[in-house]
Design a protein around this nucleic acid. Structure first.
Lengths: 246, 246
DNA sequence: TCAAAAGTGTTCTTATTACACCCATGG
DNA sequence: CCATGGGTGTAATAAGAACACTTTTGA
């Protein structure tokens, strides 16, 4: 950062801008990857769907602001949250120079509670695959966040963040298939996932399903924390059968 | 982005902040990964080394500002440049609320020309491995950029950006070894690199070296552009011998 | 003729892929 | 007893890793 050569008045000119955070909140439901959007109640872009976000308070860290936006809207905190990048095109905001820092977060959609904020802002889950025409540059932001999610999910075991505490291997596979927009081979998927020893077999099964009940697992946080230090790999490949068929 | 519920005066309060870009400019010389730093001539942090950066002009895109900083300092434009992320801790800048957007760029160090700006700012190349005690939060920024570089270099063929137009396979291997801080097996490295068909054999050799002269290659941009569309993989692994020896 | 780096293949091991049938439950 | 999804193993292929000697040049 370098402003030595600027006069004080020049320097002050720069302080006419603001920054915001926008949060791409992902959830998983009915075999489908969802994103939480709000309907704008005022101009600009009144009536359009937009990513939840807010201006960052003068004495607030960026991450804190992103957590706050999430918490006010969903009632949830303590979730997976990651900064993606800044979006700062000059004309991205009609009311002034506002750059935004994009985050994505992964929540277990069942924990979502309708808060006053989400009610007032008409928050609603949308299938990621069908979202279009968002306010501001939010389509671009969503694309960037979704692309990073695809990459992350192949290289870090963060998919679990989108599922309930107890889940079946089939649910996990469907989650990966939804995020990666591909099909995975069931046996290879299970072999790979189980060989990582990141799942704990709960010795419980589903109840009330009209077929053989599946075993339930939970994610092994302790073991994961240990593995993280070595930078282990967590890579998933798609079934070639489906690729050939295309 | 959401500021519907704020009054105009509240809204204006937010416009008391500024943003900057900081650019981690990497070069490669004498088998060593370098970063271009400037010595600060004024407070805050007078006399300390810092990343080159500047406040973003009110009518300037973030990327444009990053390119400008690079060009003013080095005389070079049209290089590999990528945004890393924003750094926005409340107290990261002593003079006010200034968030910064970090970029990294890769330049062929031989193309670097000492500009008036770089002279005035006492710009100097430092070995990345020995940098310490930078101004502001620039150590943190450098770390983040270096980590992303390590990842990028394993998955995208961008290493060539740091080399002269014509280079030897050994030079390329040394570059990768310097960036990844590891040793690579010569035969496996060559096999892998050549099997990608991203290098063009120039049918030329080094001159004036006191040993068997190496063949010169250049990067095949056209072929790379074609491959990019499929999202091909470009992965390098280190020699296990060295890992075992540790 | 020596020093210094260039160049080159094969074997072993590990990881990935393809693939099909029986099992347990509820209705 | 049927429909539905759960659960399992093996063989073939591909990719990665280990490893050592000969070649070419300038000094």
């Amino acid at each position: 950062m370098e402003q030595e050569s600027k006069t004080m008045s020049e320097f002050n000119n720069f302080f006419k801008s603001a920054f915001s955070v926008d949060n791409v909140i992902f959830g998983f439901d009915e075999g489908d990857l969802k994103v939480l959007l709000i309907k704008r109640g005022a101009d600009p872009f009144k009536g359009m769907w937009a990513l939840p976000g807010d201006l960052v308070y003068p004495n607030e860290d960026l991450n804190t602001a992103a957590v706050r936006v999430l918490e006010e809207l969903t009632g949830i905190s303590d979730v997976y949250l990651e900064q993606v990048r800044a979006f700062g095109a000059v004309n991205r905001h009609p009311l002034g120079r506002v750059i935004t820092i994009a985050y994505f977060s992964l929540i277990n959609i069942n924990k979502y509670v309708v808060t006053a904020a989400s009610f007032a802002q008409k928050a609603k889950w949308h299938s990621v695959s069908t979202v279009k025409d968002l306010a501001f540059d939010h389509n671009q932001i969503l694309d960037a966040c979704y692309n990073l999610l695809k990459q992350r999910v192949r290289t870090r075991p963060i998919g679990f963040e989108l599922l309930p505490h107890k889940f079946t291997l089939t649910a996990l596979q469907h989650l990966y298939e939804a995020i990666l927009e591909t099909e995975l081979d069931k046996r290879n998927f299970r072999k790979k996932i189980l060989s990582m020893n990141l799942l704990i077999d709960l010795n419980e099964t589903q109840e009330g399903v009209a077929h053989r009940p599946a075993k339930l697992y939970k994610f092994d946080n302790d073991r994961y924390d240990k593995l993280v230090q070595d930078g282990f790999n967590f890579e998933l490949k798609e079934s070639r059968r489906k690729l050939m068929a295309e």
